[in-house]
Design a protein around this nucleic acid. Structure first.
Lengths: 186, 186
DNA sequence: CTTGTCTATGCAACAAGTTGCATAGAAAGA
DNA sequence: TCTTTCTATGCAACTTGTTGCATAGACAAG
């Protein structure tokens, strides 16, 4: 499982509670790794048992106490081990592609709205990435310190997200053009 | 679950056995939807129970009998229903992105080989797609018949795969350049 | 004053996906 | 001849991931 490792990375970048992790998985990290809060709480429990994370209870006034997790040496070692293992290039699960091929046995034109909806979602994601990029990665390049290494690596991952959204939008345009053409020719 | 629907699409395109489906899921369909043979057999059993597919036993000499599945009206109706439901834009699981961000807490240069390996895999996939495209989708465009609709839709999905691989390769080049730069600056 | 949202954690049940193993004959290669 | 690969199907056990629900105080909107 790589959820454990995604959590380790996120906690190394910044310690936080399960709840905070869940929100990060809806934003930055969630764009290339998704997880629900139930999953995160369960895995955190196991990781705590394995000594990969340590907890610090933080009492709060007016809201439930939170458990702030951070990563001790044992957890960082576990991450290192994983980093040195080869992994399989990702396997995709692309519902929309299945639908498009399936539309041959139904009405292809009926898919236009669905594709437009996806187009909108990806447009929004791209805009969101670009805002984040302008906010976090502009300005003069400072000399390389350990922190800048992390910043550079976060930036290259973000550039990947941007490239992915742009490619997807161009492809969805292609899909829409194809669906419109098929409808016109029918 | 969408595996059922991916199977319906594949069987509508061409009836076949569980074994044949498993192989298709390693090739064309598998590039946007993966499944192992155990999963396929199990789901086919359930779909048979639901009347979404029908079986025809085909005795063979010299090798085990095979069960050829095809899709009756009930299955096609199930597919239609799914096609008219909205779906969530896919959630990605991109191990490599997690590794890249994680490398900030280890040695980024150690990731170079892994990234190169992924680059090679995606280069091969792209080449494979391009061969398939030349084989199946070149030549003069025939007038639009129902079969051509399917062909057009398969082509636009394949173009999506090609665009994805090209984008990924460009991004991996960016990642490699970044990792080399960080190593040089260290 | 009631409804809804936010913070914060968690259990239980279920669905989906993975891994390991088993069978078994045919054909091809070492 | 022996081993491997291919065709063809399947069970059992396990790991992951999803869905529904529960608790509970604070705060904001209607």
């Amino acid at each position: 499982m790589a959820l454990e490792h995604a959590i380790l990375v996120s906690l190394l970048e910044k310690p936080g509670s399960g709840y905070e992790l869940a929100r990060r998985f809806e934003r930055s990290i969630g764009y290339f790794w998704t997880a629900t809060h139930q999953q995160i709480y369960r895995v955190l429990k196991r990781m705590e048992g394995d000594g990969w994370v340590t907890v610090r209870e933080i009492p709060q006034q007016g809201r439930p106490d939170k458990k702030e997790y951070s990563v001790p040496a044992l957890g960082q070692a576990a991450l290192s081990r994983w980093l040195h293992e080869p992994i399989e290039p990702e396997s995709v699960r692309h519902d929309l592609a299945v639908k498009i091929r399936g539309a041959a046995f139904d009405d292809p034109a009926a898919l236009i709205r669905e594709v437009e909806r996806h187009h909108q979602v990806h447009t929004d994601r791209l805009a969101h990435y670009l805002v984040g990029e302008r906010r976090d990665f502009t300005g003069p390049e400072a000399p390389v310190t350990p922190d800048d290494v992390g910043r550079e690596l976060q930036h290259v991952v973000l550039r990947g997200g941007i490239a992915y959204e742009r490619m997807t939008l161009a492809w969805l345009d292609d899909v829409l053009a194809t669906l419109h053409r098929l409808r016109a020719e029918r």
